[in-house]
Amino acid sequence: MSKYLIVGAGALGCLYAAELARAQQQVYLLVRDTQANIQTRELAYTRIDGTQESIQVQALDTPAWRQQAPTWAATFCGIILATKAQDALASVQALAPQLPPQVPVLLLQNGMGSQQAVAQYLGGQHLVLAASVTEGAYLKAPFSPVHAGRGVLRLGAFDPEQTKAQDAAQAWVRTWPTAHLKCIYAQDIHPWLWQKLAINAVINPLTLIYNCPNGELMQHLPQVRLLVEELQTLLQSLAIQLPCTDLQTCVQEVIQATAGNISSMLQDQRAGRPTELAYISAYVLACAKQVGLTLPAHVRLYQQAQACLAIKD
């Protein structure tokens, strides 16, 4: 039995907590509650086949982590950071004083920018891994995850040149205990992170401004194609080769495969939560500026998304 700490009780955090616990792993879920002691928490888990199951995990908050960490932090086989991108750095800063450098930290954040901030903060002594996650999940209520679609947890060292982190990534995949959530090693995770970013940079803000599920974006294909063309120009300027050979086809396939889904950005906006727009659209535009590109379609989309968020606020 291995021990995992999962930081963040959102959809992905609860999904991984439930499946790891089902695989007889010892799971600790770091939550925002104010209890100072470790308590048993039940997850009302809906599996991908629709069956429901009550899963028990151990829940704790940051004060409890700080109290317990000196004696057992080094016994964890891995820490999964499943927070929103905007919360990633602060969450790591709260853990860092008691974070053993030999325990790998796996980052699941959408977009890009938060991974760089975490890696820079932790420095080269820690084993920082990053992942591109395509599992479909949502919460129908707090601590009630629904596994809505099969995908892949593809992970690798955030710094591909860090040998110890690469070894840790391969070990993570070798010892991954649940076949229900597929886990794959990537020698260079950055093309996969960029591919997910490119897809999200089209789907997330478009669903936000049109207030629609992903599938309805097929009614806006000219705009989708223009956004993808600009991304292809940016990727070429940055000398980034994506794993997929045709980004236009890839984006449309994701739209169709997730037709009934509500994007995470639209879910956040509807719930009155901060979105990850700064780590998706704004990050794309910042990279474009660095290489002298303007990406007018993405600029307009970003401005429209900001306006939608301002209206909601």
Rank of each mutant, 00 (worst) to 15 (best):
A257V: 03
A286K: 15
A88W: 06
V103N: 13
A82Q: 14
N261C: 07
Q267E: 13
S263W: 02
S2A: 14
H190R: 15
Q170G: 12
E216T: 13
Q26P: 09
Y4P: 03
L106P: 00
L231R: 09
I189Y: 11
A286H: 15
I184N: 10
I280Q: 05
S281H: 05
V251S: 12
P213C: 08
T75I: 03
N37S: 12
C250Y: 13
I189Q: 01
A85Y: 05
P145E: 04
A168K: 14
A23D: 01
S54F: 12
Q219D: 15
T245M: 05
T83C: 04
V31L: 01
Q170E: 10
W176K: 10
A141V: 06
A96Q: 14
T178P: 03
D61V: 01
P104L: 02
A17Y: 00
N37T: 11
S144P: 06
R66D: 11
L217W: 01
L43K: 07
L217T: 12
D246S: 01
D61F: 00
G78E: 09
E53W: 01
A36S: 07
Q39F: 05
S144C: 09
I199N: 08
A141F: 14
E230C: 00
A23P: 12
Q187M: 09
A11E: 03
P100A: 01
A131T: 09
P213N: 12
L155E: 02
E19N: 11
K289V: 02
D33L: 00
Q223P: 10
Y210C: 09
I189P: 01
N110P: 06
L106Y: 00
N110W: 03
A96N: 07
A259E: 08
A64K: 00
E135P: 05
V57R: 03
K312G: 03
S114Q: 02
A168F: 02
L309V: 05
P104Q: 10
Q86S: 14
T294A: 10
K84D: 11
N211V: 03
A17L: 01
T207Y: 04
